[in-house]
Write a protein that binds this DNA or RNA. Structure first.
Length: 606
RNA sequence: GGGGUUGUAGCUCAGUUGGUUAGAGCAUCCGCCUGUCACGUGGAAGGUCACGGGUUCGAGUCCCGCCAACCCCGCCA
C-alpha cells in the first residue's frame, strides 16, 4: 500500500486526530524558519495545515526541511498534536492542531513562482496570470471559482434530471449557417474545399430533437462565435441549452425561474427572492433605453417628445418631430457632476453613441434652472420639465434628442455610467424577464426585414395571422413591410443586473409559418433549403409545438461570484484578441497540413 | 476597423521641471534566530525603463511609429 492511500486532506485534520499518525500531501504555501524549529503551511485543494520540523526531534529531517521553498510538492508523515493555547491560530480551520513531521518526501521541486500565489502578496497582471494559468489556478479565488462553477453545473444537472430532462450531445462539427454571428470554420480533409462550422449554439439540433420526440432536452453546451471579445464575451463559452415540447412561454419561463433559483442555491448558497418581474421590450426601452435594463436602481428616462413644443429650442423641436426627445434626471448630480465631467461625457456620447451633443440643466438650490439653454425654456416649459422628471434642487437633467436608437443608446449609457460614478447601484441581485420583443428589425442597408432573434422564433399567437397573411402576398410595399415591425415575437430574455444571461423563444413548428417568415426575410426557397433544409424537412414530419432557452453559464457565474470578467470564472480563457497566452494558440501550421486540407493562406508573412 | 488606459528588477509599484550611479516592498541567494502563522532580522544579487526611430549637450520622462494586455464603440441571429 502506498503512502498516498493513507493521505488525509489538509483541512480535514482536527483535534479529534490528536496523537494519530497521518500522511498529508500538497504544496509548500509558506514556511517560517525559526532557527531550531521550522513551520510549513502545507496546502492542498482542501486548505492549509501547519507542519512542524523540530531540530530537537530529528536534526536530519530538520535540515532536509530547511531546503524547502514555496510550491515544492511534498509528502509528510507525522503525528497530529494539539497546539498550546497561546499557539492556536483562530484564522485557520486547522489552527488548533499541527503535524509534527517524522518523515518528509520531496515529490517535486518547484522553481520560484513568477506570480504571487499568497493571497497577501496581491495579484499579478492578468497577462502573466494567463501565461501561467496553471499557477494562477492554484490561488484561492480561482480554486473557489472552479469549485462554484462545478457546484452550479451540478445543480443544473440535478434539477433538470429531476424534471425528467435528457442530456443529449449534439455535433461540434456542424454545417455552417451564415446567419447571426460569424462561424469558426473547420476545413474538411475528406471533402476537398468544404468546411464544417463550430456551433454558435445547438439551435437547430435541439429543435430536431423535439421533432425526434425527446420532449425534454438539455445540454451543457460549448458554443463558438467568431466575434470581437468583451469582458463578458469569449469566442467559446458554455450554455445551459434547453428545449421542451408541448409548452407555452409561461411554462418555459416558470421552469427556468425554478432552475436558476435551484442552481444558484446550490452554487452560491443564496435564495433568490420571488418571481422576477416581467417587462415588455417597449417598456424596457422607454424607461431604461435598453433591452437589458439594470433595475437595481431607478433613474428612469422621461418622455419629452410633446414637451418640446413648449420650448423655443430648435434642436429639441426638430428632434421631437423627426426622432425622439427624452431626458435623464440624475439625483444630486448638480454638485457631483462638474463642468469638466459634462465635457467628458459629451465627448464620450458623441464618439461612442453618435449623439450630436449633450444638453443639460442643473436645478439650483432654490429650484431655479441653471444652464446655457434656459433662455430657450419659457417659465411654463421649465415648470413642466421639473414636474415630469421629478427633479429636486441639486439634480441635473441630461437631454437626448435624435434618432430613436441614438437617444436610447445615449441615455442608457449615461444612466449606467452616472449611477456607477455616484454609487447609486446597490450590491444586490435583481432579475427580470424582458418579453414581447419585435419579431423583425429593419435593415437600413438592404431596406428589408431582419430577424431580431433567429428565423425560427414564433410570433406571439395573437400576431401570427399578420405574418401568415403577409407571407402569402407576392410582394410587399415598403409600408407593408414596415407594418410588420409591430409584430411581437414569442421570445423572452432573462436579465440579471443589467446583463443578459439567458434568452429563448417558442419556435415555429408549422412549415407554412416558417416559410412565410423566410419569404418576408427575403430568404429564397433554394437558400432556405440549402441552409436549413434539414430543419424544414423535420417540421414537415410531425413537429410538436416546442420552445426553449439558453443560459450563459459564464455570465451567471461572473455575476454570482462578483467577478469583473467571465475570464475569471473560466479555467483557460483567451485574451481579447482570442489568443491563449499559455499555449500560444492560434498558431501557424505546417504547409503539409494545409495541403491536406486543400488550403492556402493569403496572409502576408510578418 | 475606431477611441481610450497601461507597459520601469522575477512580482507589485514609485520615479518631481528632461539633469549625478533608476528606487521601495515582496520573491530569490547567503547568514542569525526553538513557537511562528503575511514571523522577525543582517547582508547580497537582480534593470534591453515593452520594442524601433527622432528631438536634445543630455530622454524612464518630450515627439513619431510599433507590439502586447485591458476597457469601450462597431460587431455579437
Amino acid at each position: 500500500m502506498s503512502s498516498f492511500s493513507l493521505r488525509r486532506e489538509c483541512n480535514s485534520v482536527g483535534p479529534a486526530d490528536n496523537e494519530k499518525s497521518i500522511v498529508v500531501c500538497g504544496w509548500v504555501y509558506r514556511y517560517r524558519d525559526q532557527g531550531g524549529v521550522l513551520f510549513v503551511d502545507l496546502r492542498d485543494r482542501s486548505g492549509l495545515v501547519q507542519v512542524v520540523f523540530d531540530l530537537a526531534v530529528d536534526a536530519e529531517l530538520h535540515k532536509k526541511a530547511n531546503a524547502l521553498r514555496g510550491e515544492d510538492v511534498i509528502l509528510v508523515t507525522g503525528k497530529v498534536r494539539l497546539r498550546d493555547k497561546n499557539a492556536i491560530n483562530p484564522k485557520l480551520k486547522t489552527g488548533e492542531i499541527e503535524i509534527v513531521a517524522h518523515e518528509l518526501e520531496l515529490l517535486s521541486k518547484a522553481k520560484p513562482s513568477p506570480i504571487p500565489l499568497d493571497e497577501h502578496d496581491g495579484e499579478a497582471s492578468e497577462e502573466l496570470r494567463l501565461e501561467y494559468r496553471f499557477l494562477d489556478l492554484r490561488r484561492k479565488p480561482m480554486q473557489e471559482a472552479l469549485r462554484v462553477r462545478h457546484e452550479f453545473i451540478r445543480g443544473v444537472r440535478n434539477f433538470l434530471d429531476n424534471e425528467g430532462f435528457w442530456e443529449v450531445e449534439t455535433p461540434i462539427l456542424n454545417k455552417s449557417t451564415p446567419e447571426g454571428a460569424r462561424d469558426f470554420l473547420v476545413p474538411s480533409r475528406l471533402n476537398a474545399g468544404e468546411f464544417y462550422a463550430l456551433p454558435q449554439s445547438p439551435q437547430i439540433f435541439k429543435q430536431l430533437l423535439m421533432v425526434a420526440g425527446s420532449e425534454k432536452y438539455y445540454q451543457i453546451a460549448r458554443c463558438f462565435r467568431d466575434e470581437d471579445l468583451r469582458k463578458d464575451r469569449q469566442p467559446e463559452f458554455t450554455q445551459i441549452d434547453i428545449e421542451m415540447s408541448f409548452v407555452d412561454k409561461d411554462m418555459v419561463m416558470a421552469l427556468n425561474e425554478r432552475l436558476i433559483a435551484s442552481a444558484c442555491k446550490a452554487a452560491f448558497g443564496v435564495e433568490i427572492d420571488g418571481k422576477p418581474q416581467r417587462m415588455t421590450y417597449h417598456d424596457a426601452m422607454e424607461l431604461y433605453g435598453n433591452d437589458k435594463p439594470d433595475i437595481r436602481f431607478g433613474m428612469t428616462l422621461t418622455e419629452l417628445g410633446d414637451w418640446a413644443a413648449m420650448t423655443e429650442f430648435k434642436v429639441f423641436k426638430g428632434a421631437a418631430e423627426t426622432g425622439r426627445l427624452k431626458a435623464l434626471c440624475v439625483p444630486g448630480g448638480a454638485a457631483k457632476v462638474s463642468r469638466k465631467d459634462i465635457d467628458d461625457l459629451t465627448q464620450w456620447v458623441m464618439q461612442d453613441y453618435k449623439a450630436k451633443g449633450l444638453a443639460w440643466v442643473k436645478v439650483g438650490e432654490g429650484g431655479a434652472l441653471e444652464s446655457l439653454i434656459t433662455k430657450f425654456l419659457p417659465e411654463a416649459a421649465q415648470a413642466e420639465l421639473v414636474k415630469r422628471t421629478g427633479a429636486k434642487p441639486g439634480d441635473i437633467i441630461f437631454f437626448a434628442g435624435d434618432r430613436a436608437d441614438i437617444v436610447f443608446a445615449t441615455l442608457s449609457a449615461l444612466r449606467l455610467r452616472l449611477a456607477e460614478k455616484l454609487g447609486m447601484i446597490p450590491d444586490t441581485y435583481k432579475a427580470l424577464w424582458v418579453v414581447d420583443f419585435p419579431l423583425f428589425d429593419w435593415d437600413h442597408e438592404t431596406n428589408s426585414l431582419l430577424s431580431v432573434h433567429h428565423p425560427f422564433t414564433a410570433p406571439v399567437p395573437e400576431d401570427a395571422h399578420l405574418v401568415k397573411e403577409a407571407g402569402k402576398k407576392e410582394s410587399l410595399t415598403a409600408e407593408e413591410q414596415k407594418a410588420l415591425l409591430a409584430v411581437r415575437s414569442n421570445a423572452y430574455d432573462f436579465v440579471l443586473n443589467g446583463v443578459e444571461i439567458g434568452g429563448g423563444s417558442i419556435r415555429i413548428h408549422e412549415s407554412e409559418l416558417q416559410q412565410a417568415i423566410f419569404r418576408l426575410l427575403k430568404i429564397s426557397d433554394e437558400e432556405a433549403q440549402s441552409r436549413f433544409g434539414f430543419l424544414l424537412k423535420g417540421l414537415e414530419f410531425g413537429a410538436p409545438p416546442h420552445g426553449g432557452i439558453a443560459f450563459g453559464v459564464d455570465r451567471v457565474l461572473m455575476l454570482g461570484l462578483k467577478k469583473a470578467s467571465i475570464r475569471d470564472v473560466m479555467a483557460f480563457p483567451k485574451t481579447q484578441k482570442g489568443t491563449c497566452l499559455m499555449s500560444g494558440a492560434p498558431s501557424l501550421v505546417d504547409e503539409k497540413q494545409l495541403r491536406e486540407l486543400y488550403l492556402k493562406s493569403t496572409a502576408k508573412a510578418r
